[in-house]
């Protein structure tokens, strides 16, 4: 006879408590360490921080709750500004960009909607596929699968010119810390503009 279990624990077990726990854990894996992106239609970071009125309209209209308010580090200039953490929720680059439409301050602009949020970079030292584990998750789930990212010799390879920086690959990567990250395109955006 094994050790008795309390009624409470027992009920938890019966009602699938542990499953819920795993589900919760799933959502939180590797979020904290991720790099953040500016919302679609933003210019360079300096310009964005100067123009954004912190009305959080974009935050409230995004149907996927992709935009959040940056609260991770009070020392960071972006503290209190809207950002995207692709590990938590990537951007779906909606056809009509409700986030940009909602922005009244001019921080997010339609004419900049085609500028990528960043570029995906595979971290070869932790990516499964570079370690003999077959894992095409990022490639399979990328909305531009085979264009922005494809399996070459069984490893993911990003086409920088095609990648939108949406971050879906980051969100789905099944390593504990994402083995693919988005290099924010502060720089790019300025140049491409």
């Amino acid at each position: 006879m094994s050790e008795p279990i309390s009624r409470k624990d027992f009920l938890k077990e019966v009602f699938g408590f542990f499953r819920t726990e795993v589900e919760k854990e799933s959502r939180n894996i590797g979020i904290a360490a991720d790099s953040f992106l500016l919302p679609p239609g933003a210019g360079g970071q300096d310009e964005f921080l100067q123009t954004c009125s912190q009305s959080y309209q974009c935050v409230s209209v995004c149907p996927y709750q992709a935009i959040e308010v940056f609260r991770n580090d009070p020392q960071d200039a972006r503290y209190g500004y809207p950002v995207i953490n692709p590990r938590r929720q990537a951007c779906y680059l909606c056809e009509d960009f409700p986030c940009i439409s909602a922005c009244k301050s001019g921080a997010l602009r339609m004419e900049r909607k085609t500028i990528p949020l960043g570029t995906a970079v595979v971290l070869k030292d932790i990516c499964f596929s570079y370690k003999g584990i077959y894992c095409p998750s990022c490639v399979v789930k990328c909305p531009l699968s085979g264009i922005a990212i494809s399996m070459v010799d069984n490893k993911p390879v990003v086409q920088e010119e095609e990648c939108t920086g949406c971050g879906i690959c980051v969100q789905v990567c099944p390593t504990e810390q994402p083995a693919i990250r988005i290099k924010p395109s502060t720089q790019n955006r300025m140049e491409k503009r």
Binding site: G30, A33, D34, S35, L123, D125, I126, F128, K131, G132, I133, T175, E176, Q177, P178, A179, R181
Partner: peptide
């Protein structure tokens, strides 16, 4: 940024068990 990147990579390496993998 460098700090974040390297620390994340280190945690990740431990967590996916890279040290156990080929190579």
């Amino acid at each position: 940024r460098e700090f974040l990147k390297t620390s994340a990579a280190a945690t990740a390496a431990a967590s996916i068990g890279v040290n156990l993998l080929p190579g």
